[in-house]
Write a protein that binds this DNA or RNA. Structure first.
Lengths: 145, 145
DNA sequence: TGTTTGTAATTAACATGTGAATTACATCTT
DNA sequence: AAGATGTAATTCACATGTTAATTACAAACA
């Protein structure tokens, strides 16, 4: 078997796919002075409610050292709060503030429009199928599987 | 239309997919003291022959500022060389050295084995179809059209 | 020739990715 | 209670991602 050429290697193709998609969102994020990762953290907290750092890191696909820095920045901007969990001095519950919710809601319409445009160009069925196939890949390659 | 939940957003799913795949390659790269991006640069040069920085950046999906740093590191390790293009003092041709080729060749068997294992778990047909669908997405979202 | 315009590459500044080490607590064990 | 072990979070050190600004040339042109 030949090794895949760089033009058809799975990691590089996933990287390029992510790039062309994120290019649509970056101007919006820049206008609101927020990074992609900060936006992910806020969305997860808005969807799920208060979480501990480890759980949040997992759901937002951010490594603990990065999350530490992101939390610090978001806390300084009063977009999230942190409250120690009683009975365990290590953990803290992270929660989105009303300002944070407002920011997410501000961005939501444009976010939806961008997704609809992508789906329109790519095809809604293909789009769903691609997501299914990616989730299946993640499943088949996860350490537990 | 509802916004996609973080668990089914395309950028995050692409990110997680890339993560589970790269997890298989990282131990190999670490053993050879090379980063993922340095490995990409070497593979592109090995496949394509000498390239100028801009062309290399495009093919390896690395931004110019990162490439500048990567080139410096690879040059210091004598894995690539850089030669000024005559008649244009800005450009330089980057080429992989025999040591660089040897490194790539060292890694090739394990690399192929990892890909085969992934294909085996996921299914060869699915695997090819996923690549096709990703390339189609990249096509439909590329700025040119 | 000298100036303007355009392009390739680098640098700067800051955020994140990554693995290893460390700190701060909890819990278990004796 | 004291020590050993385990876990959550942070810190460290270095590489890369990202945008903006700058440098070094080339090419076009007045």
């Amino acid at each position: 078997m030949l090794p895949p050429s760089t033009r058809r290697s799975l990691p590089m193709t996933l990287l390029r796919a992510r790039e062309v998609i994120m290019a649509h969102f970056r101007p919006m994020l820049a206008r609101h002075d927020i990074t992609e990762q900060q936006w992910r953290v806020l969305r997860v907290l808005a969807e799920t409610g208060p979480l501990e750092a480890t759980e949040l890191a997992g759901r937002a696909s951010i490594l603990p050292p990065s999350l530490t820095r992101i939390i610090k920045a978001l806390e300084e901007r009063r977009l999230i709060t942190r409250n120690r969990v009683k009975d365990d001095g290590r953990r803290a519950l992270l929660a989105i503030t009303p300002s944070g919710v407002a920011l997410i809601e501000d961005l939501a319409p444009e976010r939806i429009a961008i997704y609809e445009a992508i789906e329109g160009r790519y095809g809604a069925e293909q789009y769903e199928q691609l997501l299914d196939m990616l989730e299946s890949l993640i499943q088949s390659e996860s350490s537990e599987g």
